[in-house]
């Protein structure tokens, strides 16, 4: 009885699915899906030349690079993008000392709501404060950058590729998809999901930032540095995580080898194992 019932239920689902397949196949044949402009021209993010120091099982942050990236962030990105999950005190982890952290913090005004007067006042930043919100008046919604490298497919490579990927719309694109011309106020960037981004090219020329360590501030260098910095803001514990990981794996290999030997020992008298 139960098997007859089950076969009937099975046939019902199979029939419903076959119906779906059939209609789907029919519309696939009569109206084959057209390739979209995103499918044709979207590019996958890639690493900068030389790669990122923090990639790979043994990868580590390069504090010099993170400090350069912080400079790019604070002089370029910070005009529109906030970094609200990062506290000034966190900057100690990328090589600034207490006094430098205090000096950096003091450059920012931290808004503070006073519940007795109802006013919003502000005080100069302290090490314990987080980066303040950024007021943005233009069009579009510049996202907070604290987690951006973890919140996008491709992570740091995506940020790097996006920053260096601004270009003219290819002639071939306009030929094949004339309706896909980049609208006014948007900018063509093949690394952006829908190819047209509201952000104007932020790193438009070399030497937009002057590095204190003498590194030549090419566009690619600035993009790589800020991508590295934003990787640190998203995953500040990356170095510690990998160090801990190696210690844990080393111990586990040792303990598992012992466990295997003990297992063989105990089973030594039993055939079949």
């Amino acid at each position: 009885m139960i098997r007859i019932l089950s076969i009937l239920v099975g046939l019902f689902f199979s029939a419903a699915l076959t119906w779906s397949v059939g209609l789907g196949a029919y519309s696939y044949v009569t109206e084959p899906p057209k390739e979209t402009v995103e499918e044709a021209f979207h590019l996958h993010p890639h690493e900068p030349a030389g790669g990122f120091s923090f990639n790979g099982l043994f990868g580590k942050f390069d504090n010099q690079q993170l400090q350069r990236g912080f400079k790019v962030y604070s002089e370029v990105c910070a005009n529109c993008h906030a970094l609200k999950l990062v506290a000034f005190r966190d900057l100690k982890a990328i090589g600034y000392n207490d006094d430098e952290v205090k000096a950096i913090a003091a450059k920012y005004q931290i808004p503070e709501y006073d519940p007795t007067t109802g006013e919003v006042k502000s005080h100069a930043g302290l090490a314990k404060d987080r980066f303040p919100p950024v007021v943005y008046a233009g069009s579009g919604h510049p996202p907070d950058l604290s987690l951006v490298t973890k919140a996008r497919h491709g992570g740091a490579e995506y940020v790097y590729s996006l920053l260096t990927g601004y270009a003219e719309q290819p002639a071939e694109l306009l030929k094949r998809f004339p309706e896909a011309k980049t609208p006014d106020g948007l900018y063509y960037n093949p690394y952006f999901a829908n190819l047209n981004i509201a952000m104007p090219e932020p790193l438009a020329s070399d030497d937009q930032v002057t590095y204190s360590d003498g590194t030549k501030a090419t566009k690619a260098q600035m993009a790589a540095d800020v991508a590295a910095f934003l990787t640190w803001t998203a995953e500040p514990k990356l170095d510690k995580r990998k160090q801990t990981g190696w210690a844990v794996l080393g111990f586990l290999l040792f303990a598992t080898t012992l466990a295997y030997m003990a297992y063989r020992n105990i089973w030594a008298g039993k055939k079949g194992h």
Binding site: L249, L252, L253, A255, T256, A259, Y260, A262, Y263, N265, I266, W267
Partner: peptide, 12 residues
């Protein structure tokens, strides 16, 4: 003993 070894492999 066998489960201890299995646990080690799992944890790795």
């Amino acid at each position: 003993a066998k489960d201890g070894f299995g646990l080690g492999v799992f944890l790795i």
